[in-house]
Amino acid sequence: MPVRGVIGTDYMTVRPDFKVIKNPFGEDDILVVPAVSPEVSVIHAFRADRFGNCILNSATDDALLARASRKVIVSAEEIVATEELKASQRGYFLSRVHVSGVVHLPGGAAPTACGSLYRADEAVLGEYLKAAADTANFGRWLWEFYLKFAPGGES
């Protein structure tokens, strides 16, 4: 993929996979970078149908991520019928073509925000930062966080 700029920065010295070529359509030198192709992406949707069609937050790059990945798991705040999904007024429609599986997971974006549905939880993000300072601590914190959302948990 071609990208403007970058040539002249130190990224060129630390990324041997970044190449400079002559622009075949112009006179200039241009940077080309290898595509990022994740094995698996997990993205969170406002809503999805049971076939994998979904409505994403249009401010994010999740649709691009889905198209670049081999396997795509969509978690969704709600599962609705296809007709209802297609009638959605807001958000970005991603086709089931790019989706491998769907999970119904209300609150799945927490502790980060989910569009206008809920805000980022600053207190929990603060805990996350503190816990992430050491590995053992972080494992414990993550398990406790998971338990809150596990079936039969607090929420």
């Binding site: 403007r4 700029g5 040539i7 002249g8 920065t9 130190d10 990224y11 622009n23 112009g26 200039d28 030198d29 241009i30």
Partner: peptide, 15 residues
């Protein structure tokens, strides 16, 4: 310490 954005670039680069 590390140039993440460069104020200058070679003349061969479109800018």
């Amino acid at each position: 310490d590390f140039v993440s954005s460069s104020a200058s670039s070679p003349p061969s680069v479109y800018r």
